[in-house]
Every structure is written in C-alpha cells, then in structure tokens.
Design a protein around this nucleic acid. Structure first.
Lengths: 206, 206
DNA sequence: TTGACAAAATGAACACTGTTCATTATATTT
DNA sequence: AAATATAATGAACAGTGTTCATTTTGTCAA
C-alpha cells in the first residue's frame, strides 16, 4: 500500500517539522519562551494541530530531551580516544561540564526540568537516556579499577553517582546564577578549580 | 507622629499577611500553583493590591526565599553541638541533605529557581544568604584544617564549593526525579551511600 | 462638620499560557 | 459522484503576570 506509506511518511515529516522548529525556538529563546502557540506560528499550522502529533507539551519536550541526549553523547564521544583510564574519566567530567555551560537550555531540559520525566512517568517508561549516561560513567570507573587507579572493592554504582552529582552540582548551581556571588573571581575558572580539586580527591581511591 | 507609625505598622502587617498566605500556599501546593491571584484570594484582597507591597512576583518570591534561609539555618544550627570538627562537617552535609529532601519546595526556591536571584539582580544586590551559607561551610573546613583532618595548604573556598556542589548535586537530582531510574534501590539510601563514599574520599585530605 | 487633598484598593483590561472539541476542509474509498 | 475516513482548525475554557484609570477610604485644615 503506497498510499498508507505516504501517510506514514507525511505523519513523520510533520512530526519532525514540529520538533525542528520547537528545537530552534528552544535554542534561540529558551524554555520559558517555547510555547505551543509560538511553535505553531513557526510551522504555519494551528496550535491544535500539534496535539495530533504530541499528547501534550511534556511529550513534545521529552522528544526534544531525547534529541539533546544524542547531542550530549556526541559531545562526550571524543573522550573515548584518551588512552589512560583515569585521564579518560577526567576528560569525561570536563566534557560534561563544558557541554552544560555551552548548552544551558539543553542541559536544563535533560537534568533539571520535570517535564520530560513527567512524560516518561505517564507513559510508564523509565529514563533510559539517563541510564545510558550513568552506565557510561560506570564503565569508566570499572576501567579505572582495572588499571589500578581505583581500589577493587570500590562500588562502581555509588562512585558513578558521586561523580555525576559533583559535576551536576557545579553545572546546575552555575546555570542558576548561584555562583554570581563570587563576583571577583571568574565563575568558569572557579568550576574548573573545584573540579580539579575533586579529581585530586579521587586519587585516594587508589 | 502616631498616625504615621500606625500606617507603617499596617503596611508591615499586610506585607506579612501576604507573605504568610503565600508561604502557606507555596508549602501546600508548590511553586507552580502559587499564583498572585490565588494569594489574593486567600488574603481577601484584589491581585493588584499585592503589587503595592511587592514590585513583582520575583520580589515576593525573594522574600519567601529569605524566610526559607532562616528555616535552613535553624535546621543546620544543631550540628554546632557536634564536638569533633570532621564529624561536624559530616553532620552539616547530612543535615543539608535532610533539609532538602524534607522541604523540597523551599529547597528549590533557595537553590534551583531563577526567580529570587533575578529579583536580587534587578535590585543590584548580592546573594548574601548564599554567602552566609558558603561561609558556614568554609568555617567548618577551616576547623578541619585546624584539627589536622585536612592539609594546611587546602584552599577552603574551593573545598567549600566542592562540598556544596556534591550535596546540592545529590539533592537536586533526587528532587527532579533523576534517581527514579534506580528503581530497585531505595533512592534515599542511595543518597546516603553516595554521601558516605564522598566523606570517605575526603579523608585523603589529611 | 464639611470640603480638599492624599493614600489605598480595585475592576477591568492586555497579552499571554496549555488544552479541548465541535466544526470545517481535505483526501480516500466505494 | 456520493459516502466515508482522515486531517486541520477556530473558538472557547480556565488560567497566568502585570498595569492603570477609577473608585473608595482615610487624614487634615478651615
């Protein structure tokens, strides 16, 4: 049936047009300004049409959130080329922080907003993008163990969460202006310095 | 002039009535449901009246935010009685986490929402509540140095930020449902375990 | 006590928001 | 060409923060 095929294709095309313009609006003007009506304006359809392609706004934001994760994993993929296991873990942390600072809106969508997780919740689905991310950290922790950087009895799950919480703490406090009180110092250097100290601290895992 | 005094008092009283009901609404139904109109309903004034007492919603949220800090400092004050310097730092971290988990809305207001900091920004004021909080951590880090738990060359500023970022990372990821993917385990125990590991890690500062 | 003035409170409006649904327009099938 | 299925929409609902002309209330001097 080529006509059903075309219908499927058209459905997919409009879905992606919505996402494309939603993404553009999201990156240009941020989460707050990304309204259904403004997306509708950009794609030249009525607001109601969007609801034929997405259950609600959370559902649309979940789709954007998933695209952002692909973007994040791209940004993190370069660290794979770092030969040393511990240096690789350090590079991962640095790349994560850099991604957060350079893509604030996407970072918020992935790790700070409730919307995408609410969409998953009502679909009875788990946050597998997050699982993939923490698995990446866990693997690198295991590598560090294998190469003698971390003790063998170290729990990789707990360690991965600790690493994640540290970098997320730094990025999210920065993004929400909580480092502006350190007015004299450069905020980004402060993050680097803190991350550096954290890395030093990790060396006692040996 | 007793009449000017009474006017001042009345101004203060209504300001505090607004804050009282705003706070109640905020705690009962959360940030999202705390609208100017609903506050107005509760205090039995028109929405426009609120704007005679607060510049805008951010300004009102800043006032709530400051009240929350008093509440936080109260919750943290008990750790002062812990005799050992390092144990005191650990107790501070635990108390901070516990406060965050038990008072999610207040925690978000203090450390995750933009609103209060935007209000400060347009007043050209600094986030002195935040400064007081980080100073508390810094003092305890200094205590640890003084009692031989941390090396003398450790930078207390960077260390304080690292400690803060760690606990904030844990609390904020939890509050934004990012730990729900670890479905089998108890999320709060996961936080405790991670914080425990972090504390162990700190012992290499000796 | 009354009139003039100042202060406080408000109703209504503006420009938005997400979402739903009966109606209309388009496309496909009989 | 008529009947049916699919797609798109206009209009409405209920809500948001905010502003401002208008009205109400309170104070003070004549």
């Amino acid at each position: 049936m080529s006509i059903a095929d075309r219908k499927d294709r058209e459905k997919k095309e409009l879905t992606e047009l919505i996402l494309k313009e939603a993404r553009a609006l999201f990156l240009e003007e941020g989460f707050e300004k990304t309204s259904i009506r403004r997306i509708a304006d950009r794609i030249e359809y009525s607001p109601a049409t969007i609801y034929l392609y997405f259950k609600d706004k959370n559902d649309l934001l979940l789709a954007l959130h998933q695209e952002s994760f692909t973007h994040l994993f791209e940004a993190l993929s370069s660290v794979a080329s770092v030969p040393d296991a511990f240096e690789r873990l350090v590079a991962l942390g640095k790349a994560y922080i850099e991604y957060g600072l350079k893509n604030p809106e996407e970072y918020e969508l992935m790790f700070m907003l409730s919307a995408p997780l609410e969409a998953l919740e009502c679909r009875h689905e788990l946050w597998c993008d997050g699982q993939k991310a923490i698995d990446l950290v866990k693997m690198m922790v295991d590598d560090c163990k294998a190469h003698g950087y971390f003790r063998k009895d170290l729990d990789p799950d707990t360690t991965a969460i600790m690493l994640w919480a540290q970098v997320h703490g730094l990025v999210s406090l920065y993004l929400k202006q909580r480092f502006k009180m350190f007015q004299d110092q450069d905020q980004k250097k402060l993050i680097d310095k803190t991350f550096g100290l954290f890395i030093k601290t990790l060396q006692c895992f040996r």
